[in-house]
């Protein structure tokens, strides 16, 4: 998804202290990193702080970046570790699978958009997305992050293995378990899937 060769050239310019190169890297990745942080915390202020801290850390440690790996993998690794550390520090509690209602106390049905566009499709889709994000936010962090890397960032299994520094088989098994848990949680909240 990200151009490894282009990143490497930009990073080499960063290491020479060229200011526009840092802005280029930031422009390329800020959306992805901010959204990852947002979906890990579901809080705009925390996401902003975490994402900024990630970039500040990365930009001060570029000398330690091993150019034999993809820059995107290194960046996502720092971001995921930073988010998980933040969640641990703040001891966020996760809703149990038995909690079958949304945050406003009402039960919802998660309706996937059909192929035929109807007048309510846009609204239904928006509501369904909100419910899905709510359930994702209640996944344990190690499952949430792997769902985000796979589906939101659309990284391959190999790339996820590089980011999380795990064997490919472990990544695959964890993604399967994360999806199964997500489906189970959607069902337990009466979101029709």
């Amino acid at each position: 998804m990200f151009d490894r060769h282009q990143d490497l050239k930009t990073i080499q310019r960063c290491k020479r202290g060229e200011e526009p190169a840092f802005a280029e890297i930031l422009g390329r990745y800020k959306g992805a990193i901010y959204n990852l942080c947002y979906r890990m915390t579901r809080n705009g202020e925390d996401a902003r702080d975490l994402a900024q801290e990630v970039f500040i850390k990365v930009f001060s440690l570029l000398d330690r970046f091993d150019e034999s790996y993809a820059f995107s993998s290194w960046l996502f690794r720092i971001a995921t570790n930073h988010c998980i550390d933040h969640l641990r520090r703040n001891r966020l509690r996760f809703l149990s699978l038995e909690g079958g209602v949304g945050k406003d106390g009402q039960e919802y049905e998660l309706q996937f958009p059909g192929t035929e566009p109807g007048p309510d499709t846009v609204l239904q889709r928006k509501e369904a997305m909100e419910r899905l994000e709510e359930v994702i936010a209640d996944l344990p962090p190690h499952y949430r992050v792997i769902i985000m890397l796979r589906h939101d960032q659309q990284l391959s299994y190999d790339e996820i293995a590089e980011v999380l520094q795990m064997p490919l088989g472990t990544v695959k098994a964890r993604i399967h378990r994360a999806r199964n848990l997500l489906i189970q949680m959607l069902k337990s909240r009466s979101y029709d899937i």
């Binding site: 959306g31 902003r48 996937f112 958009p113 997305m129 899905l132 589906h151 939101d152 959607l186 899937i193």
Partner: peptide
Amino acid sequence: GLFEMLETMPDHPLPEGF
């Protein structure tokens, strides 16, 4: 359908002055 929704979740806008 779930995969499709996960992959088309809208991006959250970046805060100003990011």
